[in-house]
Design a protein around this nucleic acid. Structure first.
Lengths: 228, 228
DNA sequence: AGGCTTATCGTCAGATCGACGACAACAGAC
DNA sequence: GTCTGTTGTCGTCGATCTGACGATAAGCCT
């Protein structure tokens, strides 16, 4: 059907949309490019897929290399393959979405001049088509909060209902009624597991601490509407 | 950062999961391979991305070449890039999902020995990792029926509520109450546009004909549970 | 102790859901 | 034409869920 000699030459890369919630804003992990093209511009972290590794494995590897973290939820976002998205050659890029709790400030990787968390509202002029990829990632994250337990990925291993609510409020850009949110979230089967512990770190009355449950879908879902 | 001379050699293909509802079953469009590897096996239609076209455009082109249809809803399903999924060389494949109304029997393309609609329940022993891709496509279709107007893509341009209901019943493998389904589906804003016409093609009392509306999400969604 | 903050439980009216009854509007049999 | 069978559409009812919001709990600070 085809042979190695007649296929068109492609390079395959992975790009990572790594999101976190910190200082009351949804932030993306960006690196400042140290090489041409787009030298000096902000870009999504990422890199080449190697011949011996799967594309998914390349995403995990790049995530670890760029942020030093592993074990995050990582899912395919989409594949971007316009002919001239890289000015040098034909590059097809597979984008991944990762959600992280508030991590320490990232260290710049080998081929980046800097790495930093940037509030998504303030992002501008990214390299390549990364603005579109980031936008798709943010939209995906917003949508998945409704019917998956993805919001808990933004929290530490143990968290309070209010911390989870603040994730929803910041990612969706709305404000949610604490009492109704508490009722719904504790009513979803398998979403939260009580640890029995409480914490006072948010001030006020001590709040119960929870861990992620094993639910993979939220039923009923948390709909994105709300009242003030 | 990189140059054409040192990137690893990849081939990029598209694979198409084309689904339709016909004769009371959810069917996938499959081709029988005429060339090695996997000669004689059923496989998803697909082919190489050309250097001058985008990956999305390649999917549209392959869909037209293999089925003769265009204008279908086409969305990215995922990218499959295990190192040895093709025994010959490193191939990364971008899978797309397309939903079609009941089409005429497809004609075999240039490099396929045959093409045919196969009920997804009866599919076995596909080439490459196509069984997994097909499974992902079916699952995606099932899930998207809940909260998008995708079910209407399985119907002709004008359809009755009962025809849409049968799509849901067949794709989900459940049976739905006709009265509640009618109430919910006509209550979703922007999902259906009445044509004013009626048809008698399903027997019984004439049913109102509808066209797709412009809604892109279903609110409220049609949840997958039901009672007998 | 009193005030402030946040957490959690409870209440209530309106919307929604599934189960199902009732009737409408056609075709075909006779 | 009437009967029967089939399918479409509207309505009703009780259970459940939702959003708005009151009330209380339980810590900290001064």
């Amino acid at each position: 059907m085809y042979s190695p000699s007649d296929f068109p030459p492609f390079a395959v890369t992975v790009d990572l949309v790594v999101l976190t919630v910190r200082s009351d804003a949804l932030c993306a992990l960006l690196v400042r490019r140290g090489e041409a093209p787009y030298r000096g511009r902000w870009a999504l972290p990422g890199g080449f897929v190697q011949v011996t590794e799967s594309v998914d494995a390349a995403a995990v590897r790049e995530l670890r290399e760029e942020t030093g973290v592993s074990g995050l939820h990582l899912e395919q976002l989409g594949t971007y393959g316009e002919p001239r998205r890289d000015p040098r050659m034909r590059v097809v890029s597979v984008a991944y979405l990762a959600l992280a709790p508030d991590l320490p400030v990232p260290v710049a990787g080998t081929d980046a001049a800097a790495a930093s968390w940037v509030p998504v509202e303030e992002v501008s002029a990214l390299a390549f088509d990364h603005a579109r990829i980031l936008g798709d990632g943010v939209e995906r994250a917003r949508a998945k909060l409704e019917y998956t337990p993805l919001g808990t990925e933004f929290c530490a291993a143990e968290f309070t209902v209010a911390e989870l609510r603040r994730v929803y409020e910041i990612v969706w850009g709305v404000s949610l009624d604490p009492r109704n949110f508490h009722r719904k979230v504790t009513g979803v089967d398998g979403l939260l597991v009580a640890t029995g512990e409480t914490t006072v770190r948010d001030g006020g009355r001590p709040a119960a601490l929870f861990r992620r449950g094993d639910a993979s879908v939220l039923y009923p879902p948390l709909v994105r509407v709300s009242g003030v």
